[in-house]
Design a protein around this nucleic acid. Structure first.
Length: 477
DNA sequence: ATGTTC
């Protein structure tokens, strides 16, 4: 495997395997390259390069690790006219993503005890953990048709947000074409989880802006040194999971008759123009809108919790939405002269300054791309540069795992985890359920973010440092 | 990621 990675530009390798019809690029710093052992993830990029209508390069981001079908940290673009869509190449958690709120609260004013109170006030409103459903009956029963039609906008209009939030969400918080009729009854029955976080790597985090790296951009984004921020990481919960499972099975079963057999089930696919392909995209859009709505509702409850605990009016606290980005999704986009369906699985869109798909407020700068680290480690806000077209305007989505969940649960004790957290306050049922989320189960976020910056693709704007985090429990050792 | 091995 190692000898098949050939350095062609700063931090950019070509993976030479088999008779791949299109190029495969993997972005790794020298250090990440030296530590990289995951041949299986590269094999998955190769398999993706074989799918009909794929337009090169297929890309591995610096946070790449083995996934189901396409690796996490994978980008695969398909020609919109003659290419395929793959449910597995979007991922199980459709529109898993992150949103960042800025505040006017100096971190120095928030003692540990207040931080704990804030996390508890959020936890009372926003359930965390696998299988948890909405706390509020009306949200458990919210109209899926309304979510399909409006996404986050529907709930903003219902009072769960501010008008200005609308344009500070990728695609305005609403993909067109979402259709409830395109998903199974089983999927619809799982749509009772709005305003919940879930488990795994999902979280709500409170931290402070630790370092300003691009002063002008940080000021325009309202990110000021030593002020608090809030980061929300979650997705479409059981609904998206069920839609992915259903369509992955359907695409696998119909691969031959659709003329698009896949090399492995995880890359089961259908022509974009086919009935299966179109129906998946309608279901994917529904889950995407559900996830945008989920993060919007969580934002509302966080604002409420801050006002309650800090006993100040919301406008004094800020709690402004900076941006909300998806990192498991497929998008119809024009790159060069071609319309493509860009699958980003564990990859974040980062449109450069001047790109017409930026919201108006970020047209001059490029929108902020938000890159969370692991629990207890830094996160970053970056923007794409003029070179970002090399990755179909994509950047990494996080740090990326280096250790499986299972291995991390065996490897680390409760005390190991506490040590690795270095004083970050954790609100969770018991941290023994979070060993699989230990910081050392992930790559070094600083090295991962530096990789694309050194390659000239991104400009890091701020480095964020966590102070406290709300997590849903996973499994005990 | 996930009503955590239908």
């Amino acid at each position: 495997m190692p000898e098949k990675l050939q350095l062609v530009a700063k931090n950019c390798y070509i993976y030479r395997a088999g008779d791949s019809p299109v190029a495969i690029h993997v972005y790794l710093s020298q250090k990440l390259r030296a530590d990289f052992t995951e041949a299986e993830a590269l094999e998955q990029l190769y398999n993706a390069s074989l799918l009909p209508g794929v337009v090169g390069p297929v890309i591995g981001m610096p946070d790449i690790h083995t996934g189901y079908g396409l690796p996490i940290g994978g980008v695969m673009a398909a020609d919109y006219e003659r290419g395929v869509v793959s449910a597995g190449a979007v991922g199980m958690d459709i529109n898993c993503g992150v949103r960042l709120l800025t505040t006017r609260i100096p971190a120095a004013e928030i003692e540990r005890a207040i931080l704990t109170k804030l996390l508890a006030a959020i936890a009372r409103r926003v359930p965390a953990g696998v299988g948890r459903v909405s706390q509020v009956k009306e949200l458990r029963r919210a109209s899926l048709e309304a979510v399909a039609a409006g996404g986050a906008r529907y709930f903003i209009q219902e009072g769960f947000g501010r008008g200005e939030d609308r344009e500070r969400i990728e695609d305005g918080g609403c993909l067109s074409g979402a259709d409830v009729a395109a998903v199974s009854k089983e999927a619809r029955e799982r749509a009772d989880q709005l305003a919940t976080i879930g488990g795994g790597n999902h979280f709500v985090e409170i931290g402070k802006v630790a370092a300003v790296l691009e002063e002008g951009l940080a000021a325009r984004f309202g990110l000021h040194k030593d002020h608090l921020y809030i980061l929300i990481h979650t997705g479409s919960r059981g609904l998206g999971h069920q839609i992915c499972t259903d369509y992955s099975n359907l695409m696998w079963a119909n691969g031959e008759q659709n003329g698009t057999p896949a090399p492995v089930k995880g890359l089961a696919c259908a022509p974009i123009a086919s009935r299966d392909g179109q129906n998946y995209l309608k279901g994917m859009a529904l889950a995407a809108n559900y996830a945008f709505a989920n993060r919007q509702l969580i934002t509302h409850f966080i604002r409420e919790a801050f006002v309650e605990v800090l006993k100040k009016p919301e406008e004094d606290l800020g709690l402004d939405l900076l941006y909300d980005v998806a990192h498991n999704i497929a998008k119809k986009e024009k790159h060069g002269a071609k319309w493509l369906l860009v699958h980003r699985k564990g990859a974040t869109r980062a449109l450069p300054a001047g790109h017409g798909d930026n919201p108006g407020c970020y047209l001059a700068t490029g929108h902020p791309a938000i890159i969370p680290g692991s629990m207890g480690t830094a996160s970053y806000v970056v923007v794409g540069t003029g070179e970002i077209n090399k990755t179909f305007c994509s950047v990494n989505h996080g740090a990326g795992r280096v250790m499986s969940r299972k291995k991390a649960r065996q490897e680390f004790s409760r005390e190991d985890l506490l040590n690795q957290l270095g004083g970050v306050v954790v609100a969770a049922r018991d941290i023994k359920f979070l060993k699989d989320e230990a910081p050392l189960a992930y790559k070094d976020i600083d090295a991962v973010v530096a990789t694309l910056a050194e390659a000239g693709l991104t400009r890091p704007v701020v480095r964020l440092q966590p102070l406290g985090v709300l997590k849903g429990e996973g499994e005990e050792a």
